[in-house]
């Protein structure tokens, strides 16, 4: 009985320590847990994979800030590597003022891996306020929405925008978000202009977007680190890409963390019922 009382009153710092060990140890142990590709990730991958270099640029919106980049940056990198491997042009932007620096940093870093030229193969847009207004404005004219790119170059002189007016020439817009901005992309991009929408979201928000997959308002979705790992796995399987597979490396730690959580939940429940039973007997 003393054991269960100890478990129920365990200092939470022991739980933190156990979780830290569960996450850190797998980095040093060479184990590979197979990653099964889920249909939402496969659908997004397949859609981008069927595009050709002349299909028009895809648009990736980095709608997140540093607080969620642990989950979202690996998926952004994986999608960029996929697009650049296929010589598909990419336009990146952010509906968040704090996301635009992340967008520029990641886009230019991945573009260097593939020797892509800024303005010709990819473009980074500056921050524009009012996210619904921005999406609606892109639906009318992307060059009017962003007169210049992030670096101050005029968009009407950039080769990437030569035959691009609005969503009609952009085969898919992908919102990578830790908040509700994918709703805005679906509402104003898909419903208003019929733009195909892809979603990359934090695991917390993933359940909110499953209904939109069923209605086909969203082409595909990457949910949390697992979604990012699935996309990384697909890209690495079919294309020769370099660089760290951040999400895939993290999945072993993720699995160990989940096992620890399950054990703790089971122990906590047994402890609760054991103590309750003991109290009833005492009464």
């Amino acid at each position: 009985m003393n054991f269960w009382i100890r478990i129920s009153s365990l200092d939470r710092r022991w739980v933190y320590l156990l979780m830290a060990l569960a996450v850190i140890i797998p980095f040093f142990v060479n184990i590979t847990i197979p990653i099964k590709i889920s249909p939402p990730s496969q659908n997004l991958y397949t859609f981008i994979d069927t595009l050709k270099p002349d299909s028009g640029p895809i648009l990736i919106s980095f709608d997140y800030d540093p607080s969620t980049q642990g989950e979202l940056t690996p998926m952004a990198i994986a999608i960029l590597r996929h697009a650049f491997s296929k010589n598909i042009k990419v336009i990146t932007m952010s509906l968040y003022p704090t996301g635009i620096g992340i967008a520029e940093n990641i886009t230019s870093t991945v573009a260097k891996e593939f020797h892509k030229v800024e303005g010709k193969d990819y473009a980074v847009m500056p921050y524009a306020p009012g996210y619904s207004a921005v999406i609606l404005s892109i639906g009318e004219s992307i060059k009017n929405t962003f007169a210049t790119d992030y670096y101050g170059n005029r968009t009407d002189t950039m080769p990437i925008f030569k035959n691009v007016k609005n969503f009609e020439q952009i085969p898919i817009s992908i919102s990578i978000s830790g908040s509700s901005t994918p709703y805005a992309w679906i509402t104003y991009g898909y419903t208003k202009y019929g733009e195909k929408i892809g979603v990359g979201t934090t695991a917390v928000s993933a359940t909110s977007y499953y209904p939109y997959l069923r209605t086909k308002q969203v082409v595909g979705m990457l949910g949390g680190l697992k979604g990012a790992a699935e996309y990384e796995t697909l890209v690495r399987k079919f294309y020769h890409v370099k660089g760290r597979a951040m999400a895939t490396i993290g999945m072993n730690s993720q699995s160990m963390g989940h096992i620890l959580m399950i054990i703790l939940i089971i122990l906590g429940n047994i402890s609760y019922f054991a103590i309750r039973k003991q109290n009833k007997r005492s009464a």
Binding site: E71, T202, A203, A206, G250
Partner: peptide, 16 residues
């Protein structure tokens, strides 16, 4: 379940 995954993911990022 997804929330647990999200929180562990953030720690994995910092640990990496």
């Amino acid at each position: 379940g997804y929330t647990v995954m999200a929180r562990i993911s953030l720690f994995i990022d910092r640990a990496q």
